[in-house]
Design a protein around this nucleic acid. Structure first.
Length: 567
RNA sequence: CGGGGCGUAGCUCAGCUUGGUAGAGCGCUUGCUUCGGGAGCAAGAGGUCGCAGGUUCGAAUCCUGUCGCCCCGACCA
């Protein structure tokens, strides 16, 4: 491609409304342009990157035995009503009516649609297992789109769905996809981690996320400092202490704590560590009523874990303070397990405390020297809290530290949630009806483009890995319109590179060298060849990798250039 | 959804407090000179000041409404 015929719109100034570097650089380098909140156009340069990513994804999906198809982005409401998600999805799903006043949704995901097609055509165990994928535009009406294409409303996703006769075969395919994803992320040249995940409202059992590690990532990951453990903090389990609970030594005592409502205040006021305090959160119960949850003072509730408890309403909702006042007879801030008027469950760490401090269920008063089993009922003890930095890794190897990641892929074993809801069934080899097991597997194509940049840039601009660079090499002729020698040399090289199938960009705009180099660096082409009279005098081109500090001289031949490109 | 902020030239922004006929830098066009890390000089083109209403002799500026965009927060005990 000749830059004289390729619209390249770069800017020196950083757009005001871009927060993260990937967003800034994609705008500055002319990869994307904003159309509205969470809506971006991909300019020719940017589209090339998307197509590169898609190509890698397609190759590996095909290799893994998945079959590409294409489903509509607009879905009839009936399908979503059938699965129950028409109600569940909430505002995130964009809904509209057609001219006949029928309801439709712009598909945020395609489980319902693929299930519908499956039941149209699949009858026999002989047709299973089967796996389909598509690369399709999705729309999720995010409450707050941000960070450019990293969290946009419209985005391109590769989503795949597999169908199986039993759980074992689903587990096999899950591993197959896990390997395919690992190959994809490796080929894209990113530093990534596979982490245990919560399956969210999509439902199902096993689930892992592929995270591109980056400080600007929106997800917090709990990883072991010395073992393989890695989980999204939402999903990270915590272990009960191996030490038995200490024996009670203190007598329970009511103390006045006027105005001390938070754990921090009480801790300071009574001079006891946060780790010696039990706090009580009150949430809506599953069947009306309230449920109390006891946590150690320094711990945070994990809402996902709590909502899984059968007595707790799902999704989790904190109790209205007025209801708490009515039932407990005191303000939130003075709640405690002694005389707790509602069912109580406790996190392992809170249940392991002895001689602890807690609210007295009486305004402006707390209790100290409280012990489970003696002063109040022994609680049901389970894992309810967020994992914290410094906690032992749940697999017993090392301690937890937090890192940030960008979720680029997610694999699920869905089980039969959708196949049941959508009425799928096939006959097995004995003629019995079986509801197939399902898996689903997603990769955020547009998000990955941004994620790669978050990991690979410098002060001058983007640094693309070879695998997804819009062009592999850029030719920068110095004094193109003055020197016939340069013109002939660069045109020859350009033609020969094209002939070998290399994606080559020729900067034939006649710019000054500084402007040429600045653009080349900003748009992030990994290899650069400078052709100038100086070098040609010694039969040499100048080669520089985008990451290298300095250029080097190579023989002025196409073969020497190809060798540098690793082609 | 709650809170805050911003809409003025293609881009980044000033002007608004104290109403008086619209500005800078970058970019763009033309010419000359330059030519190995975003060149210099000169001459130009380019804006219904988001939109609608109101106040006023007069509104980018004041008032009301509306639309769009950005940021923070969304659960604490």
């Amino acid at each position: 491609m000749r830059l004289s015929k390729f619209p390249l719109h770069t800017t020196k100034e950083t757009p005001a409304d871009a927060e993260v570097v990937s967003h800034q650089l994609m705008l500055r380098a002319g990869y994307i342009r904003k159309l509205g909140a969470g809506l971006y156009s991909w300019l020719p340069l940017g589209l090339r990157v998307l197509q590169r990513i898609e190509a890698v994804v397609r190759e590996e999906m095909n290799r893994a035995g998945s079959l590409e198809l294409l489903m509509p982005s607009v879905h009839p409401a009936e399908l979503w009503q059938e699965s129950g998600r028409w109600q569940q999805m909430g505002e995130e799903m964009l809904r509209f009516k057609d001219r006949h006043q029928n309801d439709f949704a712009y598909g945020p995901t395609h489980e319902e649609v693929i299930c519908h097609h499956f039941r149209q055509d699949f009858r026999s165990y002989k047709q299973l297992p089967v796996s389909f994928y598509q690369v399709q535009t999705k729309f999720r009406d995010e409450r707050r789109p941000r960070f450019g294409v990293m969290r946009s409303r419209e985005f391109i996703m590769k989503d795949a769905y597999s169908f199986h006769m039993d759980k074992d075969d689903l587990a096999r395919e899950y591993l197959n996809m896990r390997e395919a994803y690992t190959r994809i992320f490796t080929r894209l040249g990113v530093d990534f981690r596979v982490v245990k995940a919560d399956s969210g409202n999509i439902g199902g059992a096993a689930s892992e996320e592929f995270h591109v590690l980056a400080g600007s990532g929106e997800d917090l990951l709990a990883v072991s400092d010395s073992g393989p453990y890695a989980a999204n903090v939402e999903a990270a389990e915590t272990l009960p202490s191996e030490q038995p609970r200490a024996a009670a030594t203190a007598a329970m005592e009511k103390v006045s704590t006027p105005g001390q409502k938070t754990c921090e205040q009480v801790s300071k006021f009574l001079d006891v560590p946060l780790t010696g305090k039990v706090k009580l959160l009150v949430v809506q119960g599953a069947e009306g009523g309230l449920v109390a949850i006891a946590l150690r003072g320094d711990h945070q509730l994990n809402e996902i874990k709590a909502a899984r408890h059968p007595a707790v309403a799902s999704p989790l909702r904190l109790a209205d303070p007025a209801d708490v006042q009515r039932v407990f007879g005191c303000e939130v801030g003075y709640l405690g397990p002694v005389g707790c008027p509602v069912p109580l469950i406790a996190d392992h760490a809170a249940a392991a405390l002895a001689d602890f401090v807690c609210g007295a269920n009486d305004n402006d008063h707390h209790l100290r020297g409280v012990n489970w089993g003696r002063d109040c009922a022994e609680p049901e003890s389970l894992d309810l809290r967020m994992i914290a930095e410094g906690d032992p890794s749940p697999d017993g190897q090392g301690a937890i530290r937090f890192v940030r990641g960008i979720e680029g892929g997610h694999i699920f074993q869905l089980g039969r949630k959708y196949s049941t809801a959508m009425g799928l069934s096939v006959l097995d080899d004995k003629g019995a009806s079986v509801t197939p097991e399902m898996g689903c597997y997603g990769i955020g194509i547009t998000r990955l483009a941004a994620a790669v940049i978050e990991q690979s840039f410098d002060a001058a601009g983007i640094i693309w890995p070879d695998a997804i660079a819009p062009f592999r090499v850029i030719l920068c002729p110095i004094g193109l319109d003055k020197s016939e020698t340069v013109r002939v040399a660069v045109e020859t090289l350009y033609g020969e590179l094209l002939g070998t199938g290399v994606d080559v960009l020729l900067d034939d705009r006649g710019n000054r060298p500084g402007a040429m180099f600045a653009d080349a660096d900003l748009i992030g082409i990994p290899h650069r060849i400078v052709v100038g009279d100086k070098g040609l005098a010694g039969q040499q081109f100048e080669y520089k990798h985008r990451r290298a500090d300095k250029a080097e001289m190579i023989a002025a031949t196409t073969a020497a250039v190809l060798e540098k490109l690793g082609a």
